[in-house]
Design a protein around this nucleic acid. Sequence first.
DNA 1: CGTTCGATTGAGGAAGATCAATTAATGTGG
DNA 2: CCACATTAATTGATCTTCCTCAATCGAACG
Lengths: 256, 256
Amino acid sequence: MLNAAIPSTNAAVPTVQAQVGIGRDCTGQQSTADTLKLLCEQLRPQRRVVHAGDTIYQAGERFGNLYILNSGFFKIVNLSADGREQVVGLKFRGDWLGFDGIASGRYSCDAVAMDTGEIWVVSYEALLAACAAHPALLQVLHAAMSREIAHDRDSLMSVCTLPADARVADFLRYWAETLAERGMRTDEITLRMTRAEIGNYLGMTLESVSRALSRLARDNVIGFATKGRRDVQIPDVGALSAFVQRCLAPAPAMLQ
Amino acid sequence: MLNAAIPSTNAAVPTVQAQVGIGRDCTGQQSTADTLKLLCEQLRPQRRVVHAGDTIYQAGERFGNLYILNSGFFKIVNLSADGREQVVGLKFRGDWLGFDGIASGRYSCDAVAMDTGEIWVVSYEALLAACAAHPALLQVLHAAMSREIAHDRDSLMSVCTLPADARVADFLRYWAETLAERGMRTDEITLRMTRAEIGNYLGMTLESVSRALSRLARDNVIGFATKGRRDVQIPDVGALSAFVQRCLAPAPAMLQ
DNA sequence: CGTTCGATTGAGGAAGATCAATTAATGTGG
DNA sequence: CCACATTAATTGATCTTCCTCAATCGAACG
C-alpha cells in the first residue's frame, strides 16, 4: 500500500476519502493519491526513507534527479553568495523537488527534510524517456511545475502586501488547505518548524511570529494544544481568512 | 531576420555578439537568440505585435496557449480575491509566459505589455505534439520553467532579506544582467515602469523607491540621463552589487 | 536535576509608511 | 505652439509597524 508506508510523527493522518482513491476530486484535478499511484506504477522509482534534518540535495550539487515526496515534509532553502539563507518553499506529499536544477544543471537550493518521510528518486533522463511513452506523465510533470510557479507568486504577494499578523494567519491557512487537499486533518496541525524558520519564510523575526500567534490565539482564531505550542488547533479555516481581511481593513470603524 | 523584427522604444539594442548567433555562450547554455531561432523554426508560432498596455492574458481566463516573448517587455500581475494587486514578475526577450495556467486550466495572473514588442503564440497542445517529435524542444520548455522557478525564489529572498535601498539596487542589477544575457547595452537602461510599479514589485512604497534611487545617484552608483528620470545610467554593474553588500554590512566600522 | 534550546513578552529604537507640499514631465485642446 | 490640466517624481515631516535587545519561562534531554 502506498499510503502510510512510513510511520510519521505527523499528527494529520489521511482520511478515508483520500485512501479509497476515487478518480478525481470535485475540481476535476486528479487527487494527490491517484497521481502518486500513477507515478509509482509508471516510473517504478527508487524509494528512500528520510528523517528530520536529512538533506536530499544541496545548492551547487550537480542536477540529475527529481524527487517526489510520498510522505513527510520538506523545506527548500535558498542561499545567497554572501551567506543569507531564505526558506523559499515548503513541500508536502505529492510535491516534486528539484525543478530549479533543470535549467542550470545544478540545484540552486537545499532540500531539507523536516520530518520522517519517504521520497521517490527519479532520474530526469529516465523521466523524460517515460514521458515519451506515456504522455499522461508529462502532464503530471508540467502540472507540478506550474503549481510551483503559481504558488511562488502567491508567496511573493503575501510577503509584499500583508502585514505581519496577516502573513502568519495566511501561512496557517495555506498549511491547513494544503493538508485538506491531501485528505488530512486540519483541525489540529503540527508545525514542524521553529518560530525562527517560520519567520524566515515569511520575512519577519521570530518574535513577530510569536506575537502574531499569541494574538491569533487571543482572538480565538487558533488554539494551542495542551502540551507545547508546536501544535496549532484550527477549528475553522475560514476564520483565518477573515482575520487576514480584518488586518487589511482600512479603518477600525470605531463604535457606530 | 528574427532580431529587431519590431521597432522598440527600448534604448538597449542587441550587440553584434547576440546577432551573429554563435551556438552557445561561455556558460554552455544556448543563447537566447539561438533558442528563439529553434522555437521559431520548430513551432512556426503565430506572431503578434503588442503595444504598451496590451494584455496578453488575464487571471481567470481559460488556459490554452503559452507565449514566447521575442521583443518588448512584460509585467506579470497577480490578483487576490480581495483586490490586492502584486507585480510578481518581469519578462524579457526569450522568456515564456503562461506557465501558471497549466495546472489549474486557467491563468492566475495578468500579463501586461510595458512596451511595443512581438509575442509568439503557441498552443499548449501543439507544443506537446512538437515536443514529442523534437525532444530538444522539451528541454527548452523545461529549462524555461525551471529558470522561472529559480528566479521566483531569488525574488522572494530579495524581498525577505534585503533592506529597501539594497532591494532597489539589486533590482537594477538584475535588470542590467538580464539585458546583458540577451546581448543588450546595460550602461543605460530605460525603466518602463513607474516608481509605484517598481515599489509594488519590490514590496515598498513609491516614495521609498524614489529615495533609494536618489541615494544611489548621490553615491554615484547610478546616474540619471539628461532629460527625465526614467533612464538610469549604470556605469558599473559591480558597483550595484557592492552597494547591496554595503547595505548588509552590520557595523558602519567607524573610523578605525 | 541542571542544561539547553525554543518560545513568550516587554521596552526602546529604527526603517520605512503615510501624509503633504512642491516640482518636473507629459499630454490636450484651443 | 502655448496655456493649462494631468500624471509622475521628489523631498520633507510625522507616525506606525516591526525589529532589536533583554529578561523570563517552559519543554526536552542527557
